[in-house]
Design a protein around this nucleic acid. Structure first.
Lengths: 150, 150
DNA sequence: CATATATCCTATCTAATTAATAGGGTATAA
DNA sequence: TTATACCCTATTAATTAGATAGGATATATG
């Protein structure tokens, strides 16, 4: 499964957002600088996350973004769907198609749908809170490894 | 999960190939015409499937392509991997990356890897023989529906 | 109320990837 | 020796992803 840069940036942004105390905002500029993400590109991404009801925002001086809900209620699959479209079948926009082109085989469609559902099931088991915890544990493991080698 | 045109064409081609008696060949031209696939494009695809050990071929007059193995030994995942690359993590070619860019979060990597494995498991359960059977059953269902409406 | 701040919005540009063509080369049966 | 059908490399066209650009709008604060 391949994630686009948009999705990757979105996930990093939301992990970042999760580290702020509930109700306090962060600024795009800081997030962009600290994570090496192009600021203007990040604006578009956060805006989409807002429209999806995952982030909310306050404009003007002292404003910024913040999570719209608690991290343990935001599923990873929900985030990915915003940028990659539904993992499940039948989400595609119908294009006219070239002359002579046939419909994709129903058998293929079914297998793909089943595989997508299997992946979606995993992605909906993991919440943003799990990602943060996992990230902290990975950092801790790295720290222990460094100590081991000294 | 999105399939590229190449993968779609490859799957259609292999379902088509499965319908010929073992050991008999079919021609690119016929396959292309009957399925509305650009012939020259299809050549490239069949060639890749041959290199992957899924098809074999005979050149010259009376030649053509045929399955290299029996349909019930060819897994759907194997076919898809030829064109989409491994479903599992760590298959990407490392690109230098822009200044300031960070590594993708280990937490994200892990979730994606788990989701990919779940999808790959489904795709490796289904064989080409299953696809053909499923397609035939779908056709039969359509036929019954038509009768019902008469 | 002026100003600085920070989000909001739409359009455009560029690079990369995918899809498709093109034009012969090579093996083989008849 | 000829017609057939796969084999191979290169090029072009179309689409999508990634990134920039330039301002519009809302708001806290002096």
């Amino acid at each position: 499964m391949h994630l686009s840069k948009k999705t990757e940036y979105a996930l990093r942004a939301l992990i970042y957002a999760s580290r702020f105390p509930e109700g306090t905002t962060f600024q795009i500029r800081d997030l962009a600088e600290k994570n090496g993400i192009p600021k203007k590109f990040l604006e578009l991404i956060l805006l989409e996350l807002k429209k999806a009801g995952i982030l909310s925002s306050r404009r003007g001086v002292g404003g910024g973004y913040l999570l719209a809900r608690r991290p343990d209620t935001i599923r990873t699959g929900e985030i990915i769907e915003v940028f990659e479209g539904s993992m499940n079948a039948g989400d595609g926009k119908k294009v006219p198609g070239r002359q002579g082109a046939r419909e994709p085989s129903p058998a293929v469609a079914r297998v793909v749908a089943e595989a997508s559902r299997a992946a979606a099931a995993v992605l909906s088991r993991w919440t943003l809170a799990d990602l943060v915890r996992e990230e902290d544990e990975a950092a801790e493991r790295r720290r222990m490894n460094v100590m081991y080698f000294i």
